[in-house]
Amino acid sequence: MAGPIEQQIHRDPALFYWILLPITVVMILTGILRHYLSTLLQTTPKKQALLKMREQRHLMRARNMIINHAQISKAAFNKRKEWFADKVKEGTLLESGPDGKAKGKPNPLSDPAMMDGMMGMMKGQMVMMVPQSLIMGWINAFFSGYVIMKLPFPLTPQFKQMLQAGVGTRDLDVRWVSSLSWYFLTLFGLQPVYNFILGSNNAASQVAQQMQMQQQGNPMAGAEDMEKIFAAEVENLEVVEHWYVLDGVEDRLLAKFASSI
């Protein structure tokens, strides 16, 4: 054995027409199917009750005040800050009103709004997982037991187990892989193709899926005590170091146009 010998295996060109192309076509079609399925399975957002909406929007207004405080003068900001602090102390902004203060955290399993959130998350995951497992099973059933092509780049031997699934030999170079590896390649590589066909909002691309799962974690957080959240916002408002965007705007403007006057 004089060093690594180039292993040559002659393959039937018909392999491509009967294996690679069908797998590719199936992958693309399932991607499109996944996209349309998740669009159809989306539930229309439910309307919120007036008091709950009011509570949320006042909180949003407080957050806007913190982020955009530079747009209004200090006096205006202080006026609003004090109004908000008074209202929170009275408790009139809460959904349950000033009397229901000691309600505590609602039980996650019985709160209907969060059930919807969890269902949505589960549906999304199902749409993702089920086609993948189905296709993997299909490939293992029909296309196993032989190598199909040679990868142009080498991999570590650990991949041999996964990519040469049905082949019995032990010395075969890792670069010779079975059809399962083509499945993995297309799984990752077809995302830009989905972007082209379905527009960028498609539900078939993996990266977007992961981000969606993170964003849907938020309904769970809404169960916490609104009183504490409001009190935290009041504190945040107190801490704000106010600066005014109009301070020095005329100098900035003149500097910007200094060359053209």
Binding site: H10, R11, P13, F16, L20, I148, M149, K150, L151, P152, F153, W182, L185, T186, F188, G189, L190, Q191, P192, V193
Partner: peptide, 18 residues
């Protein structure tokens, strides 16, 4: 981009090699 590259690279490498 790398993923697309590897996909088409493998495909055409296989087509040409054999």
């Amino acid at each position: 981009g790398l993923m697309s590259f590897v996909l088409t690279w493998t495909l055409f490498y296989g087509l040409v090699k054999a």
